[in-house]
């Protein structure tokens, strides 16, 4: 239309639309963007002040024991850390569970609840990219949470002039262990959270999955131990996430088992532990892929 009136209107409104001729970085870049946005979001970065509170507090609380240990070690000039690297995550498992329960639903339930997922799929990314980015971000966030205190311990041990080779080995074993833990917990947390668009249900489901399985396993292990069936203790550990990690690190990463009577698995049963962990990681990924098959539309 070209009546004088509309021409005038156009002039008022026309504040110069500019075409975009710059680069379009495509699918891999979009996946990375989603990954970094989700990872930052897991610590409330780029979101409201309110959503920073819980993850930041949990992160701080997670690091405090390490700082205390280091302070004591440096002051008293002990030869070795009073707490193994591999033991730290077992010791703080409740905090890790709480963090996962809060942040996994934050990462996936929101997109489902506010129907943002279809919007993502209208972009160059595909379902695989969405799942990989979300899973990768959750596991990385957990790794940051669990590896940071280990780093504090390591730096502290070097400051206290403990044996370098021994500390480095312990630190490396600890890192492998928490990397595995992050993948396992991240997968379980996201699967639970992605089942429901309701955030509260997601939180409850994650807490229930972690505490009920751990409660049941440790009770049964205690019973088995007190009834002198030590052989059963190591098999029971296969049925909860944290005891799985405990088993793997006892078998392969020089950790001391936290099972009753320190009856952790040896290398043979350890392989079974490792396979179960890997199966759960792959299984979580597969369930997430299935879950998002219908959601895109």
């Amino acid at each position: 239309m070209s009546t004088p009136t509309t021409r005038a209107e156009t002039q008022i409104h026309n504040i110069g639309y500019r075409d975009y001729d710059g680069p379009r970085l495509g699918r891999a870049y979009a996946r990375r963007s989603l990954f970094s946005q989700s990872l930052r979001g897991a610590y409330g970065l780029g979101r409201s002040a309110k959503s920073k509170v819980l993850p930041m507090i949990l992160f701080a609380v997670m690091c405090i024991p390490a700082l205390v240990v280091v302070a004591v070690a440096v002051a008293t000039k002990v030869k070795d850390l009073p707490l193994d690297y591999t033991r730290y995550a077992i010791f703080t498992q409740a905090l890790i569970g709480l963090y996962l329960a809060a942040q996994a639903p934050q990462s996936v339930s929101r997109d489902l609840r506010f129907k943002t997922v279809p919007l993502y799929f209208s972009r160059p990314i595909e379902r695989v990219d969405y799942v990989l980015a979300k899973y990768g971000a959750m596991a990385s966030a957990l790794f940051v949470l669990t590896a940071s205190p280990l780093l504090i311990l390591y730096i502290g041990s070097l400051l206290a002039k403990m044996d370098f080779a021994e500390q480095t080995k312990g630190f490396a074993q600890g890192l492998v262990s928490v990397a595995l833990l992050s993948l396992l917990f991240g997968g379980i947390g996201l699967v639970m959270a992605a089942l429901t668009p309701r955030r509260g249900f997601g939180v409850a489901a994650v807490i229930a999955a972690l505490t009920i399985s751990y409660g049941a396993v440790s009770t049964l292990q205690a019973i088995a131990w007190s009834t002198d069936s030590l052989g059963a203790v190591k098999w029971l550990g296969l049925f909860s996430p944290i005891t799985l990690i405990d088993g793997v690190q006892t078998a392969f990463l020089g950790a001391t088992s936290s099972f009753p009577g320190q009856a952790g698995p040896g290398a043979g049963v350890g392989v079974v532990y490792l396979l179960v962990v890997l199966a759960l990681v792959v299984g979580s990924y597969a369930v997430l892929m299935r879950r998002y098959r219908k959601v895109g539309l």
């Binding site: 680069p23 699918r27 979009a30 963007s33 959503s51 929101r110 943002t116 160059p124």
Partner: peptide, 20 residues
């Protein structure tokens, strides 16, 4: 999503479309 600003949301979606 109700808890982010329009700017943050649209920036994110622009990056999801491949813009640096």
């Amino acid at each position: 999503p109700p808890d982010v600003s329009a700017t943050e949301f649209v920036v994110h979606m622009a990056r999801m479309s491949g813009l640096p």
